[in-house]
Simulated scan of single mutants.
Amino acid sequence: MRKDQLHVKIFPSIFYPLLFLFLGTYTANAQSVKTDSTSHKKYVSVDVPKTYERIIAKGYESLEMFDYLGNYYYKVNDLEKSKTYFDMLFKRYSRSQISKKSIEIYNIIIELEKSKKFISALD
């Protein structure tokens, strides 16, 4: 057997197990397996905001992801992150593509920012 043929046979046998180990560890951070208390069935819980943020960080983006993250962070009272994602949403897409709910929430966040600046100017 030639040396280059031996290399081709050894490489997949080492590479693929390491690849599966790495991917299994990587995806485990965004989801967890839980058991239902009544039926004792297993289900997977996925952290959607964390997953969307990783996808956006890699350069992929969509109207739905920005919309979801802006609304999610507004509901959990993280107005800075909410405004960040709404800013990205309004910068990349036209108002006709954005839901009315998101437009209303974005306007509320802008008004809250203006009132905070006004109050800080009084102090």
Rank of each mutant, 00 (worst) to 15 (best):
H7I: 13
Q5H: 13
F22S: 12
E104H: 02
V44T: 15
S94D: 12
V76W: 00
A121W: 14
F22A: 13
S99V: 04
A57D: 13
E104V: 00
E61K: 07
Y106S: 01
L23D: 11
T51F: 02
K91A: 12
L79T: 14
S82E: 08
K81V: 08
V46P: 08
D87K: 04
Y72S: 03
K83M: 07
K116P: 00
F86S: 00
D87L: 03
V44H: 02
T38S: 12
V44P: 10
A28K: 06
P17G: 12
S45T: 11
S82D: 08
S32K: 15
I108D: 13
A57L: 12
F15E: 06
I109F: 00
K58H: 13
Y68P: 04
P17K: 03
E80W: 00
G24L: 03
L79K: 04
T51Y: 09
Q31L: 07
Y93V: 03
L69W: 04
Q97H: 14
I55A: 05
S115W: 06
S94M: 04
Q31H: 08
V8F: 11
E113G: 06
K75Q: 11
Y43H: 06
S99Q: 05
F118S: 11
Y74M: 01
L112G: 03
I119V: 14
T84Q: 06
L122G: 04
Y60T: 07
R54N: 13
R92D: 09
S32F: 09
Y72F: 12
Y72V: 05
F118K: 12
T25Q: 10
